[in-house]
Design a binder for these strands. Structure first.
Lengths: 237, 237
DNA sequence: AAGTGGTCTAGACCACTAA
DNA sequence: TAGTGGTCTAGACCACTTA
């Protein structure tokens, strides 16, 4: 994909990351960039808006685009620190244990989350994520069977996500996420190494397909000491 | 402010909220909307991109813009459920207690967070938020004195934020947020009604001004049972 | 093949900042 | 007043979906 504004975006990101463009300085003006990259101003503006949304620059009317000091942040720009990243930081092999994998008739709670009727059938997958010899994340997935005819232990031990996208050609397009803290359930106590912690951080994920149908509900239950979430909030005016 | 694309955005949001446009249906195409609103296609696209970013529609290439069922979600589109909203839901008067308000030389931790030298002076404000007779949030604010010459107990009991924006004409433009779970400190135990909870949810906020200078660091320490965070994540491709 | 959204252009006018 | 970013336009071509 040769996407002009993305190419420009990546180019500038590289310049910022490498220190070629210094924090707290101004980017060249949109008109200068337009000439530099031999394109139109609107295309430059698309690239700059991406930079702004991702926290690289701050645009100020009448002044210019100020480069933000990203080196201040040792964490990713946004989102949950994923299982794999966490594992890497802890310098240990991540391991996934599939505890349950079955087709069920959804109970009232899941029916409500996925907006299903009682006749629909869903996959229930329960997995434990282990790091540094400790089971610290419990993942409970409920997937609408209609879209996922087959699911094996091998797939679940690897990545359900990759299977859906690469094998089934389903496109996951967006998700709503809710984060709350709960008391551990009996299941949490059994399947996780809670080490005396009295709470679990629960991330409830509602996953949508490309055509805006809700097809998966996931609960990711974390031991509180291994949980970190980062958000980058731009003000809406 | 008569902003064409914002006007169109708000118009469509209203139609979705009122049920005039039904979930799972398609919006009129960009070319139709262009004629309806008597504008150019790029302006329509600006409005639609806003709708997409805020979770109202899902754009699909070659098909159109699908309206998402927002009624499924009883929570706001994104962001931390604020103190005032929480209070409203609990049907009780929120109350703010100012525990500390003083000018200090920042310690190493705060200096690092705000990127200050040891000579700079900051405001330290500690407040407890009470709801339903319980102290459930502890807010610790550190503000760069350079930008905020005066701060009184009255301002802190009301809203520091409003004071900065309305009185001092400072523009808060964006913030990075980090959420972690910690053990309660002695201070937490003293100032909050922890009711036997063994953890607090800590939201660390780095607040920036319009010109991209970091000027405030805030820790908001919540009793875990009263904490909820909602995020709306669109996939980047 | 017709219709959809995605990208790109070259120009215009405006609101704001700084000298 | 000159330069900046914000908005808006009317057109063009492309990639993709559906019939």
């Amino acid at each position: 994909m040769t996407n002009k504004y993305l190419t420009i975006y990546n180019n500038i990101v590289e310049q910022i990351k490498s220190g070629e463009i210094l924090p707290q300085t101004l980017l060249p003006s949109e008109n200068e960039l337009k000439d530099q990259f031999d394109t139109s101003r609107e295309t430059i503006r698309k690239a700059l808006n991406l930079l702004s949304q991702n926290g690289y620059i701050q645009k100020v009317r009448g002044k210019g685009s100020i480069v933000i000091d990203i080196s201040k942040f040792d964490f990713p720009v946004s989102g949950l620190v994923s299982f794999k990243e966490l594992a890497k930081k802890m310098g240990s092999k991540p391991k996934t244990i599939v505890n349950e994998l079955e087709l069920i008739k959804p109970d009232v709670f899941i029916r409500k989350q996925l907006q299903l009727s009682s006749k629909d059938i869903v996959w229930k997958v329960i997995r434990t994520r282990e790091m540094g010899g400790e089971k610290i994340i419990l993942d409970k997935d409920f997937l609408y069977k209609k879209y996922v005819p087959n699911l094996t232990e091998e797939i679940c031990a690897d990545s359900i996500y990759q299977y859906l996208e690469n094998e089934l050609n389903l496109t996951i397009s967006f998700a709503k996420k809710e984060i709350v803290v709960e008391e551990p359930t009996e299941e949490d106590r059994t399947l996780l190494d809670l080490e005396g912690f009295h709470n679990v951080v629960v991330i409830k994920n509602y996953v949508y397909l490309d055509d805006a149908t809700l097809f998966q509900y996931t609960e990711s239950r974390h031991r509180p000491d291994k949980f970190r979430f980062v958000d980058f909030a731009r003000r809406t005016r």
